[in-house]
Structure formats: structure tokens, C-alpha cells
Amino acid sequence: MHRNMIVKITLLALLSFALIAVFLFFQVEGSWDYVIPRRLKKIAAIVLTGGAIAFSTMVFQTITNNRILTPSIIGLDALYLLIQTFVVFVFGSTTLTMMHKNLHFLLTVGLMVLFAGVLYKVMFKREGQNIYFLLLVGIIFGTLFGSMSTFMQVLIDPNEFLIVQDRMFASFNNVNTDLLMISVIIMALIAAYVMRFMKYLDVLSLGKEHAVNLGVPYDYVVKRLLIVIAILMSVSTALVGPITFLGLLVANVAHELMRTYRHRILIPGSILISIAALVGGQFIVERVFTFSTTISVIINFIGGVYFIYLLLRENKKVW
């Protein structure tokens, strides 16, 4: 059985590399020195955010013991949009484009992490709190942020709105190199930090009581993992924009494909699927749709439809 898994992972890795190669070298017109670095930058952004989102969703679903949930829904995406809309609404679109990129990026990430932190803080103060409660509160805040952004969006001048609209959908087309570097550093630090918790994931998927019984310092581990998830989601959203249902899609595909509970296989699997989906999707957006739609719209669409299919297909009660 184990061998089987290794074969699957290898195949997925090969698929991802093949897609990346096609993406890099397909129809290079003009100067290689110009085209290839640009494409490489996109690939880097995809690997980074795709990996972060896949990892966060996988861990999040394990903590919540539930495969219908994704960390995007706790209001972070909505907050991101609110910040973007607010800046355009108050200062006009020139500020958004002119404002110092790094400052804006750090500010956005900071606000999102702060929001998640306050949310956790308030929620965990009440001992024995149901984690679904935390999520529901997050969602409600998300709806609230959504109402506020909508209000401003309706008032904004249609030309200005186009700027906001660009921010509403993730895009890998003009990722800033500096920000990419900052993100790489943040994520590398996080990855180093989170390694120590990896061994607990399999046990956490048994549920809280079993995990405590088996000696997992539950509250300690779960709180830290949730914070890590919030940081990863914030950084990747601030870097490229929200792709709400990517995580849901890849985590469920990973489960379907791998059919195991071992995170040592599930996590690399979902990261590879995520990268393959994004690179493939980006390729289709560029070549088939010639940029008439965006990758996040397509991923959300496919992810959403696939997910409803999953929910309705299962004959057994699984969740």
C-alpha cells in the first residue's frame, strides 16, 4: 500500500513539472532573456501561494475534523477586499497603484493577521469553545465586511471600480518581485516553525478526545496551527488576491486520490495538486481565454461545482 502512495506522489510531481515546463517554454517569442524570467516569476508565485493554500486547508480540515470547510471563509478574504475597496474609495485608485507596494502589502497582511488574532483571542478565552462557533463568527464578520465593501463599490466611479475589480480576483500576472521575496522569507520561517507540529496531524484527525488521550497537548498545538494558517492565508491573499475555493478543491481531490489518512502523503499530494491546478489553469487562462477571465474565477467555479457534486454524490453520511 505504501508503495502505491509513493507511485502516486511521483506521478503527481512529474505532472506538475511537465506543466511547469510547458508553461515556461511554450511559444517563447522574442527574447528568451525577457520572457523566461517573467514566466519564472509567475511560477514562483504559483508554487508559493498554491503550496501555502493547500497546506493551510489540509491542516485546517484536520483540526476541524471536517472536509467541507476552508480557512478562506473565516472572513480573511472579505477583509482583504474591504481594505482594497476602502483605499480606493477614500484615496482614489491612484493611491492604490502608487502607494509604496511593500508598505501596502505589509499593512494588508498585518491587518488580516491582527483580525484573525483578535478573533482567536476572544474565542479561545471561553474555555471549551466549539471550533465551529469560531468559524461562524468569522463568517459573520466576513458578511459584514462584504456589506461594507459592496456599499463602497456601488458608489465608486466605474473606472475606479475596475481597479478594485482587479484586486477582487487573484492574478499571477504582475506579482511584484520584492513582495515575492518577502513572502518567500515569511513562508520559509513559518515552514521551519511548523515542522515540530507535523507529527500531531494524524492523531488530530481522530478528533479532540482521542488526541488528548494520546497525549497531544491539544489546545497548545491547535492554537499555534490556527495562527500559522492565518498568516499563510493572509500572505498568499495579499500577494496575489483571494482564491477562495482553491483549498477546498485540492484538499478534497487529494483525499479522493490518495485515500489515506497519513498527512505525510496527503500534504505533499495536495500541494502538488494545487501547483498543477494553478499552472494548468494559468496556462488555459493565457492561451485559451487570452486573459478574458481570471484564474481565480475559473478555480472558484470548478472548485464550487466539484464540491457541490461531492456533497450530493456521497450515499453515506460522511461529514
Binding site: N65, N66, R67, S205, L206, G207, E209, H210, V212, N213, L214, G215, V216, P217, Y218, R259, Y261, W319
Partner: peptide, 27 residues
């Protein structure tokens, strides 16, 4: 006590043992 040390001393089995993932007996 450290949770892990306790887990070597005391174990509990609750009455409802619903598990969300698919496991074999050996797992």
C-alpha cells in the same frame, strides 16, 4: 503533568467513538 507523559499512564475510551477518517483495525 506533560500531556504526553500522562498518555503513558492513563487512557480513556468514551462511549461514542465516531471517527471521521477511514481506518483499518490495525491502523
Amino acid at each position: 503533568c506533560k500531556s504526553n507523559d500522562l498518555a503513558k499512564k492513563i487512557s480513556i475510551l468514551k462511549q461514542s467513538n465516531h471517527i471521521n477518517i477511514r481506518l483499518t483495525v490495525k491502523d
